[in-house]
């Protein structure tokens, strides 16, 4: 028993060490090189936060939301308006926007989460469309389709993170916090209940899990992650527009989730980094970017629905199968 667990722990350890080494090397390269690589990494980290939240709701609780971009837009515009127009502290703006996102998630989730499947899918989809339309229409608040510029970088009091490198460093900390929260949730009674719901609602219900309530809470948490990601984006670029939080954000984030491995802790982050850096390799295809993403997503959905994580578990689990079977 002990012998077997030490043997089967080995590949796990090696794979983890390798993953950490790759991450460190990537970060060293990014911070050393500077310039546009920092920008790309910044987007990757922002999306990392976004998809970690989405993963709680989809990967763990097994539910589908096609309108997380709405909450990112709320976070982005909340931060833009509150910081640029009202001079609020970034952290205050971020928390206020996230609170608003949570409230809206409650209002939309309450009637739809009782019903299964497509109703929530479509209601969230509609929510994404609404924020898009409103962000164009309410130009007094959002500056319309021209976009909102002049958003200050992240900071606290008189201290501002003026360089992209410094912002990226803080973003990485925020993302790690996000992953830590997801990890804590995953290993708790709450997380086990979500996993149970994701696998079989009747069975979860029979064990006394209040399916509806747990789904609703997971939806709200995912909305908060999305909102924080939106706020981060606004600070990082200093400019947002309705297009930024448009429909392609939905497919892009799903691509990351599926590339990295839905339902795993680090998979979504790996997916976010990979999918963010990939287009840098295919620079020539600018106009085709969305098409390529979508095509890749479709191929993954059909042929490798578990993403990179299936490679990981191949590496790790090989020797984990008990000898007697």
């Amino acid at each position: 028993m002990t012998l077997r667990s030490t043997i089967s722990a080995k590949p796990q350890v090696w794979a983890t060490a390798l993953a950490i080494a790759v991450a460190v090397a990537l970060l060293a390269y990014v911070f050393g090189r500077g310039g546009y690589v920092v920008t790309v990494m910044g987007f990757a980290v922002i999306y990392g936060v976004f998809v970690t939240g989405l993963n709680l709701f989809m990967g763990y609780a097994g539910q589908a939301s096609f309108g997380q971009n709405a909450f990112a837009a709320l976070g982005g515009y909340g931060t833009a308006v509150l910081c640029a127009d009202y001079g609020l502290e970034p952290i205050v703006a971020l928390v206020l926007s996230a609170t608003l996102s949570a409230v809206i998630a409650l209002i939309v989730g309450y009637p739809t989460l009782r019903l299964r499947g497509h109703y929530l899918a479509m209601a969230t989809f509609a929510l994404g469309l609404i924020t898009y339309e409103l962000s164009i229409e309410q130009s007094g608040l959002t500056r319309g389709f021209m976009g909102f510029s002049g958003i200050p970088p992240l900071g606290l009091g008189r201290f501002q993170l003026l360089s992209e490198r410094a912002q990226l460093a803080v973003f990485i900390l925020i993302m790690l916090l996000g992953v830590w929260v997801a990890r804590r949730l995953r290993g708790s009674r709450f997380g086990r209940a979500l996993l149970a719901i994701g696998e079989s609602e009747p069975a979860a219900n029979a064990l006394g899990i209040q399916v509806f309530r747990y789904k609703l809470v997971a939806f709200v948490i995912a909305a908060v992650y999305a909102s924080v990601a939106g706020s981060m984006f606004a600070h990082f670029v200093g400019y947002i527009s309705p297009e930024v939080f448009g429909l392609s954000m939905v497919t892009l984030s799903f691509t990351m989730l599926y590339v990295g491995g839905i339902g795993t802790l680090w998979g979504p982050i790996a997916g976010a980094v990979l999918v963010s850096f990939l287009p840098q390799l295919l620079r020539g295809f600018r106009d085709m970017q969305d098409i390529i993403y979508c095509l890749a997503l479709i191929v993954i959905l059909i042929f490798v629905p578990k993403g990179l994580a299936s490679l990981w578990s191949l590496a790790v689990r090989r020797s984990d199968v008990p000898a007697e079977r």
């Binding site: 589908a64 096609f66 499947g117 899918a121 497919t251 969305d290 959905l301 059909i302 629905p305």
Partner: peptide, 13 residues
């Protein structure tokens, strides 16, 4: 939801 997602991707394409 994977199927819904695929049809959504087609829409964007």
């Amino acid at each position: 939801f994977a199927i819904i997602l695929a049809t959504l991707a087609v829409q964007i394409m």
